[in-house]
Amino acid sequence: MQHTNTQDTLVGLFVASGIAGLFFLALQVSNLSSFTEHDSYTVTARFENSGGLKVKSPVSSAGVKIGQVSSITFDPKTYESVVKLSIDKQYNTLPDDTTASVFTAGLLGEQYVNLEAGGSEEYLKDGGKIEITQSAIILEKAIGQFLFKSAEEKK
Protein backbone atom coordinates (compact mmCIF):
# COMPACT_ATOMS: atom_id res chain seq x y z
CA MET A 1 0.00 0.00 0.00
CA GLN A 2 1.30 3.38 -0.96
CA HIS A 3 1.77 6.16 1.61
CA THR A 4 0.24 9.48 0.37
CA ASN A 5 0.13 13.07 1.55
CA THR A 6 -3.67 12.88 1.79
CA GLN A 7 -3.43 10.04 4.27
CA ASP A 8 -0.91 12.01 6.37
CA THR A 9 -3.20 15.04 6.37
CA LEU A 10 -6.25 13.00 7.40
CA VAL A 11 -4.34 11.28 10.21
CA GLY A 12 -3.05 14.67 11.40
CA LEU A 13 -6.56 16.14 11.43
CA PHE A 14 -7.87 13.09 13.31
CA VAL A 15 -5.13 13.40 15.98
CA ALA A 16 -5.66 17.17 16.29
CA SER A 17 -9.42 16.74 16.76
CA GLY A 18 -8.76 14.06 19.40
CA ILE A 19 -6.47 16.42 21.33
CA ALA A 20 -9.04 19.24 21.06
CA GLY A 21 -11.72 16.87 22.37
CA LEU A 22 -9.58 15.87 25.37
CA PHE A 23 -8.88 19.55 26.11
CA PHE A 24 -12.62 20.35 26.03
CA LEU A 25 -13.37 17.36 28.29
CA ALA A 26 -10.71 18.49 30.78
CA LEU A 27 -12.27 21.96 30.92
CA GLN A 28 -15.73 20.51 31.53
CA VAL A 29 -14.57 18.18 34.31
CA SER A 30 -12.58 20.89 36.10
CA ASN A 31 -15.38 23.52 35.98
CA LEU A 32 -13.11 25.89 34.06
CA SER A 33 -15.32 26.03 30.99
CA SER A 34 -16.98 29.28 31.99
CA PHE A 35 -14.44 31.94 31.14
CA THR A 36 -17.01 34.72 31.06
CA GLU A 37 -18.26 36.45 34.17
CA HIS A 38 -22.03 36.37 34.54
CA ASP A 39 -23.90 39.30 35.99
CA SER A 40 -24.30 38.15 39.59
CA TYR A 41 -24.70 39.15 43.22
CA THR A 42 -22.91 37.77 46.28
CA VAL A 43 -24.38 36.33 49.47
CA THR A 44 -22.56 34.80 52.44
CA ALA A 45 -23.29 31.61 54.36
CA ARG A 46 -21.48 30.29 57.46
CA PHE A 47 -21.04 26.56 58.02
CA GLU A 48 -19.61 24.65 60.97
CA ASN A 49 -18.01 22.34 58.40
CA SER A 50 -17.95 22.97 54.66
CA GLY A 51 -16.50 19.50 53.98
CA GLY A 52 -14.91 19.12 50.55
CA LEU A 53 -16.57 22.21 49.11
CA LYS A 54 -14.32 24.06 46.67
CA VAL A 55 -14.24 27.41 44.93
CA LYS A 56 -16.30 27.16 41.71
CA SER A 57 -18.46 24.39 43.18
CA PRO A 58 -22.03 24.72 41.93
CA VAL A 59 -24.82 26.43 43.84
CA SER A 60 -28.22 25.01 43.01
CA SER A 61 -31.85 25.41 43.96
CA ALA A 62 -34.53 22.85 43.10
CA GLY A 63 -31.90 20.94 41.07
CA VAL A 64 -31.06 23.93 38.84
CA LYS A 65 -27.59 25.50 38.88
CA ILE A 66 -28.05 29.15 39.83
CA GLY A 67 -24.49 30.14 40.69
CA GLN A 68 -21.17 29.03 42.09
CA VAL A 69 -19.00 29.29 45.19
CA SER A 70 -16.73 32.32 44.82
CA SER A 71 -14.61 31.98 47.99
CA ILE A 72 -14.20 29.92 51.15
CA THR A 73 -12.44 31.37 54.19
CA PHE A 74 -12.03 30.49 57.86
CA ASP A 75 -13.25 32.80 60.63
CA PRO A 76 -10.79 32.43 63.55
CA LYS A 77 -13.23 34.02 66.02
CA THR A 78 -16.22 31.74 65.46
CA TYR A 79 -14.25 28.77 64.03
CA GLU A 80 -16.64 28.59 61.10
CA SER A 81 -16.23 28.31 57.38
CA VAL A 82 -17.38 31.48 55.59
CA VAL A 83 -18.61 30.67 52.08
CA LYS A 84 -19.36 33.41 49.56
CA LEU A 85 -21.88 32.41 46.91
CA SER A 86 -22.08 34.16 43.56
CA ILE A 87 -25.72 33.92 42.40
CA ASP A 88 -26.77 34.81 38.83
CA LYS A 89 -28.78 38.07 38.74
CA GLN A 90 -31.72 36.38 37.03
CA TYR A 91 -32.34 34.51 40.30
CA ASN A 92 -32.69 37.67 42.42
CA THR A 93 -35.99 36.60 43.98
CA LEU A 94 -34.61 34.25 46.63
CA PRO A 95 -36.34 34.97 49.96
CA ASP A 96 -34.09 36.25 52.75
CA ASP A 97 -35.00 33.24 54.91
CA THR A 98 -33.50 30.83 52.36
CA THR A 99 -31.54 27.92 53.86
CA ALA A 100 -28.19 26.64 52.58
CA SER A 101 -26.93 23.05 52.84
CA VAL A 102 -23.78 21.32 51.64
CA PHE A 103 -24.67 18.17 49.71
CA THR A 104 -22.73 15.56 47.77
CA ALA A 105 -23.67 14.68 44.19
CA GLY A 106 -23.92 10.89 44.42
CA LEU A 107 -21.95 8.70 46.82
CA LEU A 108 -18.49 9.94 45.89
CA GLY A 109 -19.34 12.97 43.74
CA GLU A 110 -18.38 16.58 44.17
CA GLN A 111 -19.94 18.69 46.88
CA TYR A 112 -22.24 21.60 46.13
CA VAL A 113 -24.39 24.13 47.97
CA ASN A 114 -28.14 23.65 47.76
CA LEU A 115 -30.40 26.60 48.50
CA GLU A 116 -33.95 25.98 49.69
CA ALA A 117 -36.26 28.96 49.43
CA GLY A 118 -38.18 30.11 52.48
CA GLY A 119 -41.47 31.95 52.64
CA SER A 120 -40.40 35.53 53.33
CA GLU A 121 -41.55 38.37 51.12
CA GLU A 122 -38.15 40.09 51.42
CA TYR A 123 -35.40 39.02 49.00
CA LEU A 124 -31.69 38.37 49.45
CA LYS A 125 -29.66 41.34 48.27
CA ASP A 126 -26.05 41.76 47.20
CA GLY A 127 -23.91 41.33 50.32
CA GLY A 128 -26.74 39.56 52.16
CA LYS A 129 -26.33 36.68 54.60
CA ILE A 130 -28.00 33.30 54.71
CA GLU A 131 -28.65 32.68 58.40
CA ILE A 132 -29.88 29.07 58.38
CA THR A 133 -27.26 26.57 57.20
CA GLN A 134 -26.63 22.85 57.41
CA SER A 135 -23.05 21.62 57.30
CA ALA A 136 -21.70 18.83 55.16
CA ILE A 137 -22.21 15.28 56.36
CA ILE A 138 -18.79 13.74 56.84
CA LEU A 139 -18.92 10.13 55.67
CA GLU A 140 -16.15 8.97 58.03
CA LYS A 141 -17.94 10.49 61.03
CA ALA A 142 -21.26 8.85 60.09
CA ILE A 143 -19.60 5.43 59.65
CA GLY A 144 -17.82 5.85 63.00
CA GLN A 145 -21.09 6.60 64.77
CA PHE A 146 -22.74 3.59 63.13
CA LEU A 147 -19.90 1.27 64.18
CA PHE A 148 -19.92 2.67 67.73
CA LYS A 149 -23.68 2.09 68.06
CA SER A 150 -23.37 -1.43 66.62
CA ALA A 151 -20.63 -2.29 69.14
CA GLU A 152 -22.76 -0.97 72.04
CA GLU A 153 -25.79 -3.02 70.98
CA LYS A 154 -23.76 -6.25 70.99
CA LYS A 155 -22.79 -5.86 74.66
Score class of each variant (00 low, 15 high):
I72V: 15
I87S: 04
D75G: 09
T99E: 13
I72K: 13
D39I: 02
E140M: 08
S71R: 13
N92G: 09
A151K: 09
G52D: 15
G67Q: 06
V64H: 13
Y112T: 02
D126P: 13
N31D: 12
F74V: 12
G144K: 09
Y79G: 04
F74Y: 15
S61A: 12
A117R: 15
K77I: 12
T44N: 07
Q28V: 07
V69M: 09
F103Q: 11
S57I: 01
V43D: 06
T98I: 06
D88Q: 11
G63A: 10
Q90R: 13
A151L: 05
L108K: 11
F35Q: 12
K77D: 13
A62K: 15
T36V: 13
E131Y: 02
S57A: 15
K54P: 00
T93D: 05
G63I: 10
G63F: 07
S135D: 14
K77W: 05
V69A: 07
S71T: 12
N114A: 14
N49K: 11
A136S: 15
A100P: 13
Q90T: 09
K129V: 13
A45Q: 09
T93N: 07
G119W: 03
S150G: 01
G52E: 15
A105Q: 14
G127E: 05
E152Q: 12
L53P: 11
